[in-house]
Computed example of a mutant assay.
Amino acid sequence: MSYQNILSTTNSRITTITINRPNKLNALNKDTIQELHDAFDEANSSKDTKVIIITGSGEKAFVAGADISEFADFDVKQGGKLAAKGQELLFDFVENLSTPVIAAVNGFALGGGLELAMACHFRIASSNAKMGLPEVSLGVIPGYGGTQRLPQLVGKGRAMEMVMTAGMIDANQALNYGLVNHVVEQEELLALCEKIASKIMRNSSVAIKAAIKSINANFKDGVDGYKTEIKQFGKCFGTDDFTEGTTAFLEKRKADFPGK
């Protein structure tokens, strides 16, 4: 599939999706959100992909925000539809993918950019990264899941401060907050993401899918995460990966998971 605003490449079972609008600091517009959905969907469905890495082109920005010019004249109804469609098409979609998604935050991740990074399963940042949700400075609030995912990751008080001040935090503060897992120099960012991806790929993709579903369940209203875990745990016993994993352990050899 060809794209205008993103690049998607697969190597050694890792698909790297790069938002490629450097002249706009990789800002998210309607077309880019649709292309990202399509690229994530394609990678998630591919047997050649075990891990997805999402990053931005250039050295300045992961995603510097949403393209404000697209919605500056929206009314109440249009604004609500914008948030609902965006969450369904991209942000919730990414969060619930069965393929692990790593955000390689290489610079500014603001507004919709930070919301995209937070929708990924975890985040690794370059030392020059800056993160924030500045929407209240425009008279609006984060609409792509920011008011929900940020408190889950950094706590209510810190999230309140970040949103209310519309300020940015640097990579080390994000690491201290638990917003990112690791901070490295920019030239080392993708290499570390790929190293972690290679560790993930040694394990059962079926079990990882079940783990993602179970962990996410704890953050959904009306869902008992423990019951989801019990259900997913039980399902694992009926998989070929479970048979191979336990057999390999007992035979004291490395498992070769079939992914079924």
Rank of each mutant, 00 (worst) to 15 (best):
S45A: 12
G139M: 05
R21G: 12
K235T: 10
V105Q: 04
H182M: 12
G80M: 15
G145P: 02
G167A: 07
M164F: 11
F249K: 14
I17A: 03
Q34K: 13
Q152Y: 10
K195G: 14
G145I: 00
T16M: 06
T10I: 10
S46Q: 05
S126R: 03
G167W: 00
P100A: 05
I6E: 02
K254T: 15
P258A: 07
T16G: 09
T99L: 04
D48K: 11
G167K: 06
T49H: 01
G139I: 03
G167V: 00
N106D: 05
T9I: 12
P142L: 00
V184W: 02
N218C: 08
S137N: 11
H182L: 10
N218F: 13
L110H: 08
D221K: 11
K60E: 14
N181W: 02
E135K: 00
I54W: 00
A197D: 02
E185T: 09
T10E: 08
A174S: 06
A207K: 08
S127P: 00
F242Y: 14
G79T: 08
T55V: 07
G139E: 03
Q34L: 13
S214W: 04
E187P: 04
A39D: 01
I208V: 10
E185C: 05
S204R: 02
Y177D: 09
I196L: 11
T16F: 04
L89N: 09
V140G: 08
N11W: 12
T15E: 13
D241G: 11
G58L: 06
I208R: 09
T246H: 12
E35N: 03
N5S: 15
R149T: 03
I53Q: 04
E194Y: 09
V101K: 06
